[in-house]
């Protein structure tokens, strides 16, 4: 465990007690049942995962017409795919895809709070919610991307998308070279969550993603 996890016990314990008390009261008053939170969490953790985003990106790579539809009207294009029920709800209604192309690199941030596209990317990584990351990515995206190991030449335009309650952006990364003979399922394995946030590129074949 790193230093970050060494919180003072009282503060940590106070938060835990507060949440426990709140849920117990809501159950006692009959607002929710004892299973409600577990059911909702189970759904999120089993269905709302980056696997959805990987499948969307892989389809865009093999089907340029789908790729165009995805950028033009993301929720509509996503509904063409056989993804879990609920993709349209739970914050999925505002999904908006932006596409990396030669000379254009997109990166998604949220400068206020975490407005993450859960249905396609799962829950956000911890550092995405860190004020330092958000502030730096907004102010000096090229520097941040270079630090993260994303190669950008001077001619490449960096577009920063600020997720909000209204639009939940995700990035369609460029298809890596050397993937011509690969199936859609194989291609999906090259797509990482970070690539769909624009803070990494899609993996080269053989590099592995998981």
């Amino acid at each position: 465990m790193t230093e970050r996890f060494s919180y003072p016990d009282d503060r940590e314990a106070a938060s835990a007690a507060q949440v426990r008390a709140l849920e117990a009261l809501l159950i006692e008053k009959g607002v929710i049942s004892g299973q409600t939170v577990d059911k909702v969490l189970g759904y999120f953790e089993s269905e709302m995962t980056p696997l959805n985003g990987r499948r969307i990106v892989a389809r865009a790579w093999v089907d340029p017409a789908f790729s165009d539809r995805l950028v033009a009207d993301t929720p509509k294009a996503v509904s063409e795919l056989d993804l879990p029920v609920g993709m349209a709800g739970a914050e999925g209604e505002h999904l908006a895809a932006v596409r990396n192309e030669p000379g254009v690199h997109n990166v998604v941030i949220c400068t206020l709070c975490s407005c993450f596209p859960w249905p396609v990317l799962g829950l956000p990584p911890y550092w995405y919610k860190d004020p330092v990351f958000r502030a730096r990515a907004a102010r000096e995206p090229r520097v941040v991307l270079t630090e993260l190991g994303v190669p950008l030449d001077d001619d490449t335009e960096v577009r920063v998308w600020d997720s909000s309650g209204h639009s939940r952006w995700f990035v369609v990364p460029q298809r890596p070279a050397g993937t011509d003979g690969m199936t859609e399922d194989e291609l999906a394995e090259l797509v990482t969550t970070e690539a769909m946030m624009g803070v990494a590129l899609a993996a080269a074949p053989g590099a592995g993603t998981r």
Partner: peptide, 29 residues
């Protein structure tokens, strides 16, 4: 970057069970 700024592998969604609980409660309501 923060030490937790790592790749997909082994990334924690929540640092503690109460965080997961608080997340689920807000979404459920």
């Amino acid at each position: 970057f923060h030490p937790s700024c790592v790749g997909d592998v082994g990334r924690p969604d929540f640092d503690a069970p109460w965080q997961r609980r608080a997340f689920g409660l807000a979404v459920a309501l």
